[in-house]
């Protein structure tokens, strides 16, 4: 068996945390099997990134470089991954589950006559073969399985192992040549809210989940969407947390109702949203099952504030449920953090 770890460099030429985590998982996996592994890197100039992980234990470092590989584009990424897998004669291929790799991995497996599995949350060696775990039905049930087809390509989710750390050195990277046909697609840029409005912060310790309750009539008979918006934004600014939302709250915006303008579908957690990874989570004004179960499947410590003492969804899912008015509590929290 020969394992290949594939990664792409970031805009600054380094490897992202997700890549170093997947590398660490690959190192452990290869050690458990007692087989060697190679590293394949793509990017504008991936040589320095290869040197930065020179001591990871890989027997070979292969690179594909050039301006075309600085862009996350299906045609060029799939061709590069295919070429690296062939050059390494890999039977098991691991990649970090970045949007860039998730886009191409199944297609690459098809070209190689292999199979791909995405969103892998566990990788182990059983009877000399890989055994993987992943979630099905939107993080509702977890399965462990093996496959007989090779190569087997695996996209490893963030948090699968602590990020690899080690000394830099000289990787003696081998360049793999690849000529591409003229691309039909070009990446022209990125769209993001202005940085003071960017509410999604994947690296934050805390995920702050807001529910539709923030827009509901309160005990004094008033709807206080403006105040809710200020409290939420102040808290995000003071705590540097990442903002998640329930579907109900995000959807309100589409129906012409007064709504929190900084929320979009990208904030939505749950079945039809995301399942982000953070050490802590605080849910406020949520009643739905989704934010409490699927939405924080990968959240470590969890607390919730709701007026509803019987919120069945928080029970068994949160460590602590505060039965209280989130407006009053978050106002005080902001005062203390300010």
């Amino acid at each position: 068996m020969s394992t290949l770890f594939l990664a792409h460099t970031e805009a600054d030429g380094t490897l992202a945390k997700a890549a170093l985590e997947a590398l660490a998982a690959t190192v452990q996996f290869a050690a458990a099997l007692g087989t060697p592994f190679s590293v394949g890197l793509i990017g504008d100039n991936p040589g320095p990134a290869a040197d930065a992980i020179a001591s990871c234990g890989a027997t070979r470092f292969l690179t594909i470089s050039g301006a075309a590989f600085a862009q996350a584009r299906y045609a060029s990424d799939a061709a590069a991954a295919e070429a690296l897998c062939r050059a390494a004669a890999a039977t098991v291929v691991t990649v970090p589950a970045t949007s860039r790799w998730n886009r191409v991995l199944p297609g690459v497996a098809h070209r190689l006559g292999g199979r791909a599995d995405t969103h892998v949350t566990g990788l182990a060696a059983a009877a000399g073969q890989p055994q993987v775990s992943r979630w099905f039905y939107r993080q509702r049930m977890e399965a462990t399985f093996t496959r007989s087809t090779r190569p087997w390509l695996l996209a490893l989710e963030g948090g699968i192992a602590p990020a690899w750390q080690g000394a830099a050195g000289c990787a003696h990277a081998e360049a793999v040549a690849l000529t591409l046909p003229a691309p039909r697609t070009s990446v022209v840029g990125f769209q993001a809210p202005a940085s003071d409005q960017q509410t999604i912060r994947p690296d934050a310790d805390l995920l702050f989940v807001t529910g539709a309750g923030w827009t509901k009539k309160q005990a004094d008979g008033q709807v206080k969407v403006g105040e809710a918006g200020t409290l939420i934004l102040d808290f995000l600014r003071l705590s540097r947390s990442s903002l998640g939302s329930t579907k109900s709250l995000v959807d309100l915006g589409g129906e012409g109702q007064a709504i929190l303008p900084f929320l979009s579908h990208l904030n939505q957690v749950g079945q039809t949203g995301s399942t982000p990874r953070h050490a802590k989570g605080l849910a406020t004004c949520c009643h739905g099952e989704e934010p409490h179960t699927v939405g924080w499947r990968f959240i470590g410590e969890r607390r919730a504030i709701s007026l509803d003492a019987n919120c069945g969804w928080a029970r068994g899912k949160a460590d602590i449920l505060y039965v209280a008015d989130a407006f009053a509590v978050m106002k005080k929290v902001n005062e203390l953090l300010g």
């Binding site: 059983a126 099905f136 509702r140 462990t144 003492a309 449920l321 505060y322 509590v329 005080k332």
Partner: peptide, 26 residues
């Protein structure tokens, strides 16, 4: 070949805190 399929078993022992003033919760 599936070796296991299971529902998440960890349910948390949720502590429900009522009647605490907002200052203390904060």
């Amino acid at each position: 070949t599936f070796t296991a399929v299971s529902l998440p078993t960890q349910t948390r022992a949720t502590q429900v805190i009522k009647d605490l003033p907002p200052e203390q919760i904060a």
